[in-house]
């Protein structure tokens, strides 16, 4: 019997909906300028300042809802647009194996 598991990003989206915890993988290195390195795969990335904030909040153990509220409290953005953008950002973080479900 094969163990059929849904792809990671689907798990992540599900986790967001249920407000489950998403964690940044322990081996991921992030610089202050937004440079990200994954020694497991050898991939490197860049993220913008809001992206850095999201990852920082994830590292602080904040939930998706807390991250949303944190950004809404500081930036000029409607909640619907932010939710859509965060969905996409979390999706990409999962695709690049930078985060996992806690």
């Amino acid at each position: 019997m094969h163990d059929i598991k849904p792809p990671l990003q689907i798990l992540l989206l599900g986790a967001q909906n249920e407000n489950q915890e998403v964690k940044v993988n322990k081996n991921i290195a992030i610089s202050e300028s937004g440079f990200i390195f994954n020694p497991g795969t050898g991939d490197s990335f860049s993220t913008n300042s809001i992206g850095q904030e999201v990852i920082r909040m994830l590292n602080e153990g904040k939930t998706r809802d807390e991250i949303t509220q944190g950004i809404l409290g500081r930036y000029e953005v409607e909640k619907g647009i932010l939710e859509k953008d965060l969905d996409d950002y979390f999706f990409m973080l999962g695709t690049y194996h930078i985060v996992h479900n806690g």
Binding site: I36, D43, S44, F45, S46, T47, N48, S49, I50, G51, E53, V54, R74, Y75, E76, V77, L82, D85, L86, D88, Y89, M92, L93, Y96, I98
Partner: peptide
Amino acid sequence: MLPYERPIITRYN
């Protein structure tokens, strides 16, 4: 309030 920019992550190739 700060101006908003979508969070993005870009992989280097």
